[in-house]
Nucleic acid binder design. Structure first.
Lengths: 147, 147
DNA sequence: ATAAATGCAAATCGTTTGCAACGGA
DNA sequence: TCCGTTGCAAACGATTTGCATTTAT
Protein backbone atom coordinates (compact mmCIF):
# COMPACT_ATOMS: atom_id res chain seq x y z
CA UNK A 1 0.00 0.00 0.00
CA UNK A 2 1.69 3.17 -1.14
CA UNK A 3 1.14 6.47 0.58
CA UNK A 4 0.46 8.37 -2.61
CA UNK A 5 -2.53 6.16 -3.19
CA UNK A 6 -4.27 7.09 0.04
CA UNK A 7 -6.16 9.92 -1.60
CA UNK A 8 -7.22 7.72 -4.47
CA UNK A 9 -8.42 4.97 -2.20
CA UNK A 10 -10.35 7.40 -0.02
CA UNK A 11 -11.77 9.25 -3.02
CA UNK A 12 -12.97 6.06 -4.64
CA UNK A 13 -14.45 4.82 -1.40
CA UNK A 14 -16.39 8.05 -0.99
CA UNK A 15 -17.61 8.20 -4.55
CA UNK A 16 -18.76 4.60 -4.43
CA UNK A 17 -21.23 5.43 -1.73
CA UNK A 18 -22.28 8.87 -2.83
CA UNK A 19 -20.24 10.68 -0.18
CA UNK A 20 -18.31 13.89 -0.83
CA UNK A 21 -14.64 14.68 -0.82
CA UNK A 22 -14.72 17.92 1.15
CA UNK A 23 -11.87 20.25 2.08
CA UNK A 24 -12.09 19.08 5.68
CA UNK A 25 -11.87 15.42 4.74
CA UNK A 26 -8.91 16.17 2.54
CA UNK A 27 -7.10 17.93 5.37
CA UNK A 28 -7.81 15.14 7.80
CA UNK A 29 -6.75 12.46 5.34
CA UNK A 30 -3.52 14.28 4.66
CA UNK A 31 -2.61 14.77 8.31
CA UNK A 32 -3.55 11.19 9.03
CA UNK A 33 -1.31 9.81 6.32
CA UNK A 34 1.61 11.97 7.37
CA UNK A 35 1.50 10.57 10.90
CA UNK A 36 4.13 7.93 11.18
CA UNK A 37 2.52 5.27 13.30
CA UNK A 38 0.10 6.02 16.11
CA UNK A 39 -2.04 9.03 16.80
CA UNK A 40 -5.16 10.06 18.63
CA UNK A 41 -8.09 12.25 17.51
CA UNK A 42 -7.30 15.17 19.79
CA UNK A 43 -3.68 15.58 18.75
CA UNK A 44 -4.64 15.21 15.12
CA UNK A 45 -7.14 18.00 15.64
CA UNK A 46 -4.55 20.20 17.33
CA UNK A 47 -2.06 19.51 14.56
CA UNK A 48 -4.61 20.66 12.04
CA UNK A 49 -5.27 23.88 13.92
CA UNK A 50 -1.59 24.58 14.41
CA UNK A 51 -1.07 24.20 10.71
CA UNK A 52 -3.70 26.90 10.23
CA UNK A 53 -6.04 24.45 8.56
CA UNK A 54 -9.76 24.12 9.20
CA UNK A 55 -11.71 21.14 10.53
CA UNK A 56 -13.75 20.80 13.69
CA UNK A 57 -13.29 18.13 16.27
CA UNK A 58 -16.63 16.68 15.17
CA UNK A 59 -15.39 16.36 11.61
CA UNK A 60 -12.17 14.76 12.79
CA UNK A 61 -14.11 12.09 14.65
CA UNK A 62 -16.54 11.59 11.81
CA UNK A 63 -13.80 11.32 9.22
CA UNK A 64 -11.66 8.95 11.28
CA UNK A 65 -14.61 6.59 11.32
CA UNK A 66 -14.82 6.63 7.56
CA UNK A 67 -11.07 6.14 7.20
CA UNK A 68 -11.41 3.09 9.42
CA UNK A 69 -14.19 1.73 7.25
CA UNK A 70 -12.08 2.00 4.15
CA UNK A 71 -9.08 0.43 5.85
CA UNK A 72 -6.64 3.31 5.63
CA UNK A 73 -6.40 3.48 9.39
CA UNK A 74 -7.30 1.20 12.28
CA UNK A 75 -8.44 1.65 15.85
CA UNK A 76 -5.59 0.02 17.71
CA UNK A 77 -6.65 0.39 21.32
CA UNK A 78 -8.42 2.49 23.91
CA UNK A 79 -6.53 4.16 26.72
CA UNK A 80 -7.47 6.52 29.53
CA UNK A 81 -6.61 9.37 27.18
CA UNK A 82 -8.74 8.14 24.33
CA UNK A 83 -8.59 5.94 21.28
CA UNK A 84 -5.30 5.23 19.56
CA UNK A 85 -5.43 4.96 15.79
CA UNK A 86 -2.82 3.63 13.45
CA UNK A 87 -2.03 4.75 9.98
CA UNK A 88 -1.82 1.55 7.98
CA UNK A 89 1.16 2.82 6.01
CA UNK A 90 3.28 2.61 9.11
CA UNK A 91 4.21 -0.98 9.68
CA UNK A 92 4.90 -0.74 13.34
CA UNK A 93 4.85 -3.43 15.92
CA UNK A 94 2.70 -3.19 18.97
CA UNK A 95 4.10 -5.83 21.15
CA UNK A 96 5.01 -4.78 24.62
CA UNK A 97 5.24 -5.68 28.27
CA UNK A 98 3.46 -3.35 30.66
CA UNK A 99 4.55 -3.18 34.29
CA UNK A 100 1.41 -3.02 36.38
CA UNK A 101 3.43 -1.55 39.24
CA UNK A 102 5.32 1.37 37.71
CA UNK A 103 3.62 1.62 34.32
CA UNK A 104 6.88 1.10 32.47
CA UNK A 105 6.34 0.00 28.87
CA UNK A 106 8.88 -2.35 27.35
CA UNK A 107 8.41 -2.65 23.61
CA UNK A 108 9.80 -5.62 21.79
CA UNK A 109 9.77 -7.35 18.48
CA UNK A 110 9.90 -11.06 17.86
CA UNK A 111 10.21 -12.55 14.43
CA UNK A 112 9.03 -15.82 15.85
CA UNK A 113 5.87 -14.18 17.15
CA UNK A 114 5.16 -12.71 13.74
CA UNK A 115 5.52 -16.09 12.13
CA UNK A 116 3.33 -17.74 14.72
CA UNK A 117 0.60 -15.21 14.22
CA UNK A 118 0.61 -15.72 10.50
CA UNK A 119 0.27 -19.44 11.02
CA UNK A 120 -2.62 -18.95 13.47
CA UNK A 121 -4.42 -16.65 11.04
CA UNK A 122 -4.05 -19.06 8.19
CA UNK A 123 -5.54 -21.79 10.30
CA UNK A 124 -8.67 -19.65 10.88
CA UNK A 125 -8.95 -18.34 7.36
CA UNK A 126 -8.35 -14.92 8.83
CA UNK A 127 -6.59 -12.13 6.96
CA UNK A 128 -4.61 -10.20 9.57
CA UNK A 129 -3.91 -6.51 9.07
CA UNK A 130 -2.40 -5.61 12.41
CA UNK A 131 -1.96 -6.85 15.91
CA UNK A 132 -1.25 -5.84 19.44
CA UNK A 133 0.19 -8.05 22.15
CA UNK A 134 0.26 -6.83 25.71
CA UNK A 135 1.94 -8.84 28.42
CA UNK A 136 1.18 -7.48 31.88
CA UNK A 137 3.29 -8.14 34.93
CA UNK A 138 6.24 -6.84 36.89
CA UNK A 139 9.37 -5.41 35.32
CA UNK A 140 12.81 -6.33 36.55
CA UNK A 141 13.05 -3.37 38.93
CA UNK A 142 9.62 -3.81 40.50
CA UNK A 143 10.19 -7.52 40.92
CA UNK A 144 13.11 -6.71 43.16
CA UNK A 145 11.23 -4.03 45.08
CA UNK A 146 8.35 -6.43 45.70
CA UNK A 147 10.31 -8.39 48.28
CA UNK B 1 -3.00 -18.15 44.51
CA UNK B 2 -5.94 -19.71 46.25
CA UNK B 3 -9.33 -18.10 46.29
CA UNK B 4 -9.81 -18.47 50.03
CA UNK B 5 -6.78 -16.29 50.52
CA UNK B 6 -8.20 -13.31 48.69
CA UNK B 7 -9.69 -11.87 51.83
CA UNK B 8 -6.45 -12.31 53.71
CA UNK B 9 -4.39 -10.69 51.00
CA UNK B 10 -6.77 -7.76 50.74
CA UNK B 11 -7.06 -7.38 54.51
CA UNK B 12 -3.33 -7.37 54.96
CA UNK B 13 -2.87 -4.93 52.13
CA UNK B 14 -5.38 -2.55 53.71
CA UNK B 15 -4.01 -2.84 57.21
CA UNK B 16 -0.48 -2.22 55.97
CA UNK B 17 -1.46 1.20 54.76
CA UNK B 18 -3.90 2.18 57.45
CA UNK B 19 -6.99 1.64 55.30
CA UNK B 20 -10.18 0.06 56.58
CA UNK B 21 -11.91 -3.19 55.76
CA UNK B 22 -15.45 -1.91 55.41
CA UNK B 23 -18.63 -3.84 54.69
CA UNK B 24 -18.72 -2.36 51.21
CA UNK B 25 -15.18 -3.43 50.43
CA UNK B 26 -15.93 -6.88 51.70
CA UNK B 27 -18.96 -7.19 49.44
CA UNK B 28 -17.06 -5.94 46.43
CA UNK B 29 -14.12 -8.24 47.10
CA UNK B 30 -16.43 -11.21 47.44
CA UNK B 31 -18.33 -10.52 44.22
CA UNK B 32 -15.09 -9.87 42.42
CA UNK B 33 -13.57 -13.16 43.47
CA UNK B 34 -16.67 -15.11 42.57
CA UNK B 35 -16.56 -13.81 39.01
CA UNK B 36 -14.98 -16.43 36.84
CA UNK B 37 -12.88 -14.49 34.42
CA UNK B 38 -13.81 -11.08 33.07
CA UNK B 39 -16.14 -8.46 34.40
CA UNK B 40 -16.82 -4.76 34.24
CA UNK B 41 -17.62 -2.26 37.01
CA UNK B 42 -21.22 -1.69 36.02
CA UNK B 43 -22.24 -5.32 35.94
CA UNK B 44 -20.44 -5.93 39.20
CA UNK B 45 -22.44 -3.07 40.68
CA UNK B 46 -25.69 -4.47 39.34
CA UNK B 47 -24.84 -7.93 40.64
CA UNK B 48 -24.34 -6.44 44.08
CA UNK B 49 -27.67 -4.66 44.00
CA UNK B 50 -29.50 -7.72 42.72
CA UNK B 51 -28.06 -9.70 45.59
CA UNK B 52 -29.59 -7.12 47.91
CA UNK B 53 -26.18 -5.99 49.06
CA UNK B 54 -25.07 -2.42 49.54
CA UNK B 55 -22.29 -0.52 47.78
CA UNK B 56 -22.48 2.54 45.57
CA UNK B 57 -21.04 2.78 42.12
CA UNK B 58 -18.46 5.19 43.50
CA UNK B 59 -17.33 2.61 46.03
CA UNK B 60 -17.17 -0.06 43.37
CA UNK B 61 -14.86 2.07 41.28
CA UNK B 62 -12.77 3.10 44.27
CA UNK B 63 -12.43 -0.46 45.50
CA UNK B 64 -11.57 -1.90 42.11
CA UNK B 65 -8.63 0.49 42.02
CA UNK B 66 -7.36 -0.82 45.32
CA UNK B 67 -7.85 -4.42 44.25
CA UNK B 68 -5.74 -3.66 41.22
CA UNK B 69 -3.02 -2.17 43.38
CA UNK B 70 -2.84 -5.27 45.49
CA UNK B 71 -2.79 -7.53 42.46
CA UNK B 72 -6.01 -9.46 43.07
CA UNK B 73 -7.46 -8.16 39.82
CA UNK B 74 -6.12 -6.52 36.69
CA UNK B 75 -7.40 -4.02 34.19
CA UNK B 76 -7.35 -6.09 31.01
CA UNK B 77 -8.57 -3.64 28.41
CA UNK B 78 -10.82 -0.71 27.61
CA UNK B 79 -13.78 -1.10 25.29
CA UNK B 80 -16.57 1.18 24.14
CA UNK B 81 -18.63 -0.19 27.03
CA UNK B 82 -16.01 0.45 29.68
CA UNK B 83 -13.04 -1.16 31.33
CA UNK B 84 -12.74 -4.93 31.48
CA UNK B 85 -11.20 -6.33 34.64
CA UNK B 86 -9.94 -9.80 35.27
CA UNK B 87 -10.03 -11.74 38.47
CA UNK B 88 -6.55 -13.16 38.80
CA UNK B 89 -7.86 -16.49 40.04
CA UNK B 90 -9.29 -17.16 36.62
CA UNK B 91 -6.51 -18.21 34.34
CA UNK B 92 -8.17 -17.37 31.09
CA UNK B 93 -6.64 -16.67 27.77
CA UNK B 94 -7.25 -13.46 25.97
CA UNK B 95 -6.03 -14.21 22.54
CA UNK B 96 -8.38 -13.40 19.74
CA UNK B 97 -8.82 -12.23 16.20
CA UNK B 98 -11.13 -9.29 15.71
CA UNK B 99 -12.79 -8.71 12.36
CA UNK B 100 -12.67 -4.99 11.65
CA UNK B 101 -15.53 -5.39 9.19
CA UNK B 102 -18.19 -7.26 11.10
CA UNK B 103 -16.82 -7.11 14.64
CA UNK B 104 -16.76 -10.89 14.94
CA UNK B 105 -14.45 -12.07 17.71
CA UNK B 106 -12.64 -15.35 17.20
CA UNK B 107 -11.01 -16.54 20.39
CA UNK B 108 -8.19 -19.00 20.25
CA UNK B 109 -5.54 -20.63 22.35
CA UNK B 110 -2.06 -21.59 21.28
CA UNK B 111 0.30 -23.51 23.48
CA UNK B 112 3.12 -22.37 21.28
CA UNK B 113 2.19 -18.76 21.88
CA UNK B 114 2.18 -19.32 25.63
CA UNK B 115 5.64 -20.81 25.48
CA UNK B 116 6.95 -18.05 23.28
CA UNK B 117 5.66 -15.41 25.65
CA UNK B 118 7.32 -17.05 28.58
CA UNK B 119 10.59 -17.10 26.71
CA UNK B 120 10.24 -13.44 25.78
CA UNK B 121 9.53 -12.47 29.38
CA UNK B 122 12.49 -14.36 30.68
CA UNK B 123 14.72 -12.57 28.23
CA UNK B 124 13.57 -9.20 29.64
CA UNK B 125 13.62 -10.21 33.28
CA UNK B 126 9.90 -9.60 33.24
CA UNK B 127 7.45 -11.52 35.43
CA UNK B 128 4.28 -11.90 33.40
CA UNK B 129 0.91 -12.16 35.13
CA UNK B 130 -1.41 -11.99 32.18
CA UNK B 131 -1.57 -11.12 28.53
CA UNK B 132 -3.83 -10.11 25.73
CA UNK B 133 -3.18 -10.62 22.03
CA UNK B 134 -5.44 -9.02 19.49
CA UNK B 135 -5.03 -9.70 15.82
CA UNK B 136 -7.13 -7.37 13.71
CA UNK B 137 -8.18 -8.07 10.16
CA UNK B 138 -10.88 -9.71 8.08
CA UNK B 139 -12.60 -12.93 8.99
CA UNK B 140 -13.24 -15.65 6.45
CA UNK B 141 -16.73 -14.40 5.59
CA UNK B 142 -15.80 -10.76 5.20
CA UNK B 143 -12.79 -11.64 3.10
CA UNK B 144 -15.12 -13.21 0.59
CA UNK B 145 -17.57 -10.34 0.69
CA UNK B 146 -14.75 -7.85 0.10
CA UNK B 147 -14.45 -8.73 -3.55
C1' DA C 1 -12.38 10.43 68.99
C1' DT C 2 -10.49 10.68 64.76
C1' DA C 3 -9.34 9.92 60.30
C1' DA C 4 -10.97 7.16 56.56
C1' DA C 5 -14.95 5.69 53.73
C1' DT C 6 -19.48 6.20 52.05
C1' DG C 7 -23.29 7.92 48.94
C1' DC C 8 -24.83 11.34 46.29
C1' DA C 9 -24.69 14.62 42.90
C1' DA C 10 -21.96 17.49 40.26
C1' DA C 11 -17.86 17.55 37.44
C1' DT C 12 -14.73 15.47 33.81
C1' DC C 13 -13.40 13.76 29.55
C1' DG C 14 -13.59 11.50 25.22
C1' DT C 15 -16.90 10.95 21.82
C1' DT C 16 -21.48 11.40 19.49
C1' DT C 17 -25.42 13.78 17.79
C1' DG C 18 -29.27 17.30 16.56
C1' DC C 19 -29.75 21.07 13.91
C1' DA C 20 -29.40 25.22 11.13
C1' DA C 21 -26.23 27.03 7.84
C1' DC C 22 -23.20 25.72 4.09
C1' DG C 23 -21.33 23.80 -0.21
C1' DG C 24 -19.99 19.91 -3.54
C1' DA C 25 -22.04 17.41 -7.39
C1' DT D 1 -30.99 22.63 -6.86
C1' DC D 2 -30.40 18.69 -3.87
C1' DC D 3 -28.61 16.16 -0.41
C1' DG D 4 -24.42 15.36 2.15
C1' DT D 5 -21.37 17.96 5.38
C1' DT D 6 -19.96 21.25 8.65
C1' DG D 7 -19.49 23.57 13.19
C1' DC D 8 -21.43 24.39 17.33
C1' DA D 9 -23.29 23.26 21.45
C1' DA D 10 -25.90 20.11 23.90
C1' DA D 11 -26.13 15.19 25.00
C1' DC D 12 -23.84 10.95 26.40
C1' DG D 13 -21.68 7.29 29.07
C1' DA D 14 -17.93 5.83 31.86
C1' DT D 15 -15.34 7.29 35.59
C1' DT D 16 -13.86 10.63 39.17
C1' DT D 17 -14.39 13.89 42.76
C1' DG D 18 -16.12 17.37 46.47
C1' DC D 19 -18.54 17.29 50.43
C1' DA D 20 -21.41 16.42 54.32
C1' DT D 21 -22.37 12.27 56.85
C1' DT D 22 -21.30 7.76 58.59
C1' DT D 23 -18.24 4.31 60.60
C1' DA D 24 -14.12 1.30 61.53
C1' DT D 25 -10.58 1.19 64.66
Amino acid sequence: MKKAHGKLIFGTFLKDRGLRFTKERSVILQKTLSCSGHFDPESLYLQIREAGLKASRASVYRTLSILCECGLIERVKKTERGTIYENMFGHEHHDHMLCIQCGNLIEFYSEELERLQEALCKKQGFQGTGHNLEIRGYCRKCRKKKR
